[in-house]
Design a protein around this nucleic acid. Structure first.
Lengths: 343, 343
DNA sequence: TTGAAAGCGTTACCAG
DNA sequence: CTGGTAACGCTTTCAA
């Protein structure tokens, strides 16, 4: 097992001091004669020297690593966001560590601590904020610590601890989706809600209630089915809805994956979409385009959210002024899963 | 901006030497009296001390970071693999750095170099091996270097440089998918192939030819449409196929995403699946289950590939004996996109 | 324009 | 059982 060449090796071979070698390697503005520079560069190339980021980090007390906490990389929602983050990170010389929390408070906390021990330069919380009290208490302490230690934090949803945010208005997004259904004459509208313990779930459910209220429709808690943001969850939700006396004429889902699960379950039972029941999703993941019928959905600019979040983080780390909260727009994408209610 | 507490701070406050503090923090087997240990632990808790992984890495010349090179995290193929890797990494105390190469040789090489500078402990190449000559030359040199520097390498496909591998038999997988179509009476079978410059593309195309040959069907190069593994690529492929005089009666796609693109394009043109044209995919991503009709496909155990790959890497790093190549099984999943040819 | 040397925060070896 | 201290590989300040 051979060792990596060090800057000392380079210096020795080039017959210069370590300081000088360091200067040319880092392209420092400290003056170095052309001849010396050339000599060092030649040796660097010969030996294939590249400075150890670990040693550099220790000396400068700074890494170029960014931690990203997601619920599950395998969920298209997160994978799109992560791609946006990673692209911008790369452009700016950062490297990204991805951590799957499965939205479990303890896992998330452990990851944050680990990332801090690795001295990441910044942290992006890609998922919706968790509402667990213990979690929040600990997380607030950690965030405060990060503040002091100068590690940047940005959240890509409305979090319950202080941090810069890049987010859409979750409440309004679901309100708009639901209102759209109401415009189409629906009054008995089901809601597929997200997992418990998530701020986003709360906000989206409120958006649903807002829309009903604005239209003077009574809120029926039996029509709100808790879910898990996953395909199977959508299927189960339909089973639960079927257990109540009468199906709603339309369903607002708090994400696409569940909406698609619902669509499949409904079709399996011989129900036609949108003739028998209308469906609106949220996110606009790719597969909304290839299900049958294509799903009408409220689009969230996922990739952009990731990219913008990372851009904000870069600014933060460069001590530039940034707005504490950046709102991104959602857009209703009309496809073919909604129709005017019969009769 | 406050500094992180160091082990020296702990030692001072606990009135012990740095060496002793380090011993208790690391749970070293070097003897430490119970009283001392208690005292140190108390201070550690009070100060919220956690050792800097950066300093630790410098001292031990070892990190617990694993680099993962993928084509695109946002592609369900890779996101499933990454999830498998990350789960096993976490169980074993490793952290994962994800890098999107978009299968561009230069990007991949740059990433590998960067990861090496960060002193990752191991590297997983999740995508199919690139065939670019320059790339291969450089990559072989890098792999050799990693060998010497003791950084583990595992590839999750058949790569063209020496490394441990965990892979399915790509050639056989496509052969089996194609043979399945042949069993259903198809003889004029199109092939949606992968991007150029990818070993996997080559192998899968060979599998297609193998199946034709075994059935005594002449190979028609016009029926092999190059693709990009993406939804849009599938759509474009159908446009190209339509440009030839007569559509094939069946299509073998070298991944699901393209198969689904093809399905959508075909349906848009009023063709029925599988009545008018049969379709077989490869991968078994989640959406194969919710397209209409559900897609018959050759399943690749993606999550398992990632998890197994990471497990092998862990063994490698523990100097355990491992098999150089681990073959995982593919399985044909019959759904509803294939029918016996009419007539 | 160059170099010496003091850190950075740990680990681990060697003495005691 | 405890402590002193030399690395680890680099950056950066201060002198020359």
């Amino acid at each position: 097992m051979k060792k990596n060449p060090t800057i000392a090796d380079v210096a020795r071979k080039a017959r210069v001091s370590i300081a000088t070698a360091s200067r040319v390697v880092n392209n420092s503005d400290h003056p170095v004669s052309a001849a010396t520079r050339r000599r060092v560069l030649k040796v660097v190339a010969e030996m294939g020297f590249a400075p150890s980021e670990v040693a550099r980090a220790l000396a400068t007390r700074q890494t170029c690593m960014i931690g990203v906490i997601v619920g599950d990389t395998n969920d298209p929602y997160f994978s799109a966001i992560v791609r946006g983050i990673e692209d911008v990170a790369r452009e700016n010389g950062y490297i990204v560590i991805v951590c799957n929390s499965d939205r479990i408070p303890a896992v998330e906390l452990t990851y944050v601590r680990t990332l801090l021990n690795y001295r990441v330069r910044g942290l992006i919380f890609a998922g919706g904020g968790l509402t667990d009290e213990n979690y929040l208490r600990e997380m607030r302490a950690l965030v405060e610590q990060m503040e002091r230690r100068n590690v940047g934090v940005v959240g890509l949803s409305e979090h319950l601890f202080p941090a810069c945010e890049v987010t859409i208005d979750n409440r309004a997004a679901v309100r708009d989706g639901t209102s759209y259904l109401i415009q189409y004459g629906h009054r008995r509208i089901g809601m597929l809600s997200g997992p418990a313990g998530l701020n986003t779930t709360r906000l989206r459910t409120e958006g649903y209630r807002d829309a009903l209220q604005a239209a003077g429709i009574a809120f029926d808690p039996a029509l709100v089915i808790p879910g898990d943001f996953r395909f199977q969850g959508g299927i189960r939700a339909i089973e639960r809805l079927l257990a109540i006396d009468r199906l709603p004429t339309a369903i607002m889902s708090s994400n696409d994956e569940m909406a698609i699960g619902a669509m499949v379950a409904l079709k399996q039972r011989g129900l036609r979409i949108p003739t028998d029941i209308s469906l609106v999703g949220l996110d606009d993941i790719l597969s909304t385009q290839y299900v049958d019928p294509p799903l009408t959905t409220v689009q969230i600019p996922l990739y952009e959210m990731g990219a913008t979040g990372m851009r904000q983080l870069v600014r933060l780390l460069n001590d530039e002024e940034i707005e504490p909260v950046l709102w991104l727009n959602h857009t209703l994408i009309e496809r073919q899963s909604v129709s005017r209610i019969a009769g």
